[in-house]
């Protein structure tokens, strides 16, 4: 029995090492990485094109600066995030870039880095505790406000709007919703007539839009908290004459804007966030000072 276990473990280990070897070949040889300075990037999730672009922007900046970027995926799990931070510190990164899964939960992970004297940069989401050298993000409240301004201008300050919210309780949902609702509240003839969550998911955006169309047949515009839900809603609207606005500025959304099915998207430029993060990490390594917070411009994309 014991022998069998040993054999199995040996097999599993060999398999894991083989896999590690394979992926290692895919990126860079280990001897090369040892001589270079390392920057760690802990992403909340790679399960979303937005953060994939962020990673690509960071990778590009790291390649240009001649640094090795080590990327870890937290899978939206704060516990995983903390172990990722610990692992990257073990791997000897000089600066740690963290895209937090949650502004509160990331605090302890940052404290781990603080204790090891590794400077931390946060991207896209704030950290509510711990010492952070630099915070790089677009303002979600502003993004919501820009969407509202765009619709107000298009509709002549008059009309009914359906809001498709992101995941309940997520900071992006709260901030984008607040920026939007606060601006709409200043206009007496504009109203949010329905407000439902579709969890930032395209398929759910379709379903929720269909459901809202049943209960609220009359509306002039749809504001979705992200592009994925906006694109789902467009499928449900099927050519109905309604303005649809999303946030993020992903490739699919930009294409929909060009085709005219989507009125606008507020682009967040995640690739720029990623490259700015690496560029500032390099500055920190070279003992240059960096600003405590760097706002990344939002871009209104229309046809």
């Amino acid at each position: 029995m014991k022998k069998k276990h040993l054999k199995l473990m040996a097999l599993a280990l060999t398999g894991a090492m083989l896999l590690a070897g394979l992926t290692g070949c895919g990126s860079k040889s280990t001897s090369e990485t040892d001589s270079k300075k390392k920057v760690g990037l802990v992403l909340s999730t790679l399960n979303n094109p937005f953060f994939v672009s962020m990673k690509e922007g960071a990778q590009k900046a790291a390649d240009e600066a001649g640094y090795t970027l080590i990327v870890a995926d937290s899978g939206n799990d704060a516990a995983k995030e903390r172990s990722n931070v610990e692992d990257l510190i073990q791997q000897g990164v000089s600066v740690l870039i963290i895209n937090p899964t949650d502004s509160d939960a990331v605090g302890n992970a940052i404290k781990v880095a603080n204790d090891s004297k590794i400077p931390v940069i946060t991207v896209d989401r704030k950290a509510n505790s711990g010492t952070v050298a630099c915070y790089i993000a677009s303002d979600n409240v502003t993004a919501g406000k820009m969407a509202a301004e765009f619709l107000a201008q298009k509709l002549g300050n008059k009309g009914n709007i359906v809001e498709i919210q992101g995941t309940p309780g997520a900071s992006a949902t709260n901030d984008r919703g607040k920026g939007f609702a606060d601006f709409i509240a200043t206009l007496p003839d504009m109203k949010i007539v329905a407000s439902q969550s579709a969890n930032f998911d395209r398929q759910k955006g379709l379903d929720v839009m269909q459901n809202i169309m049943q209960s609220t047949p009359e509306f002039d515009a749809v504001f979705a908290h992200n592009d994925e839900m906006a694109l789902g809603a467009i499928n449900a609207l099927a050519g109905k004459n309604v303005l649809v606005v999303g946030i993020d500025g992903g490739a699919d959304a930009q294409k929909a804007v060009q085709e005219g099915t989507m009125a606008a998207t507020i682009a967040q430029q995640p690739d720029l966030m990623g490259s700015l993060a690496v560029q500032n990490a390099v500055k920190i390594i070279n003992n240059e000072t960096v600003p405590a917070s760097i706002p990344v411009d939002l871009k209104l994309i229309t046809k």
Partner: peptide, 10 residues
């Protein structure tokens, strides 16, 4: 087919 795209997190 319904959403006209295949998302990796479908």
């Amino acid at each position: 087919s319904r959403i006209g795209s295949a998302s990796p997190n479908a």
